[in-house]
Amino acid sequence: MTISTTALVRAGLAVATMLMLFGCATQPKPLYYWGDYQPQLYAYFQGDGKSPEQQREALEKTAAQASARGAALPPGFHAHLGLLYLRMGQPGPARTAFMAEEARFPESKPYMDFLIGNLNRTQAGAP
């Protein structure tokens, strides 16, 4: 039993066509829009010298980009934004951000409740 050259060429073309089709498959849409969030978070923990206001502005820009794309923000985004609001002395927006984090990621509820509880205790003790 011999395989003809034509059969080999057809088989090779079929394999090449299949590889091209699989290679051209569209990538799945990412679950979250990260934008510049990861570099911003890294810079925050490295103490890059940016003020909380500058960091908040950068995060809000990322949030606006995600909204324009109809994409969801990643876990921790709103919590980090809330912590920046606290550093800026704005407990109202901080609470809102913590509640947004909890609403989007119910698994964050214990930590968000802890942060909101601390915020409530701090405000109750403030003159």
Rank of each mutant, 00 (worst) to 15 (best):
residue 52 P to F: 13
residue 66 A to I: 11
residue 33 Y to W: 14
residue 86 L to Y: 03
residue 71 A to C: 08
residue 56 R to K: 11
residue 74 P to C: 11
residue 17 T to C: 13
residue 103 A to Y: 02
residue 6 T to Y: 12
residue 27 Q to V: 09
residue 75 P to W: 10
residue 22 F to R: 02
residue 51 S to T: 13
residue 116 I to R: 05
residue 43 A to W: 00
residue 103 A to K: 05
residue 116 I to C: 05
residue 98 F to L: 12
residue 21 L to V: 14
residue 118 N to R: 08
residue 31 L to G: 00
residue 120 N to M: 12
residue 119 L to Y: 12
residue 13 L to F: 10
residue 99 M to F: 05
residue 21 L to Y: 03
residue 84 L to C: 10
residue 102 E to S: 13
residue 14 A to V: 15
residue 116 I to K: 01
residue 80 H to L: 15
residue 66 A to E: 07
residue 64 A to D: 03
residue 37 Y to C: 05
residue 64 A to N: 06
residue 23 G to D: 00
residue 79 A to V: 02
residue 51 S to E: 09
residue 94 A to M: 01
residue 54 Q to F: 06
residue 32 Y to C: 07
residue 26 T to H: 11
residue 53 E to H: 04
residue 26 T to C: 06
residue 112 M to K: 03
residue 76 G to Y: 04
residue 118 N to H: 09
residue 74 P to M: 06
residue 44 Y to P: 00
residue 22 F to K: 01
residue 28 P to A: 08
residue 79 A to F: 10
residue 121 R to Y: 11
residue 51 S to I: 03
residue 97 A to H: 04
residue 108 S to W: 05
residue 35 G to W: 06
residue 37 Y to L: 02
residue 47 G to K: 08
residue 46 Q to V: 07
residue 27 Q to S: 12
residue 66 A to C: 12
residue 38 Q to S: 07
residue 56 R to H: 05
residue 106 P to S: 00
residue 9 V to G: 08
residue 30 P to C: 02
residue 9 V to R: 14
residue 38 Q to M: 13
residue 40 Q to D: 13
residue 125 G to L: 13
residue 100 A to Q: 15
residue 17 T to Q: 02
residue 6 T to I: 14
residue 127 P to F: 04
residue 29 K to F: 01
residue 103 A to T: 12
residue 9 V to W: 14
residue 16 A to M: 08
residue 95 R to P: 02
residue 88 M to R: 09
residue 32 Y to H: 08
residue 120 N to Q: 15
residue 54 Q to M: 10
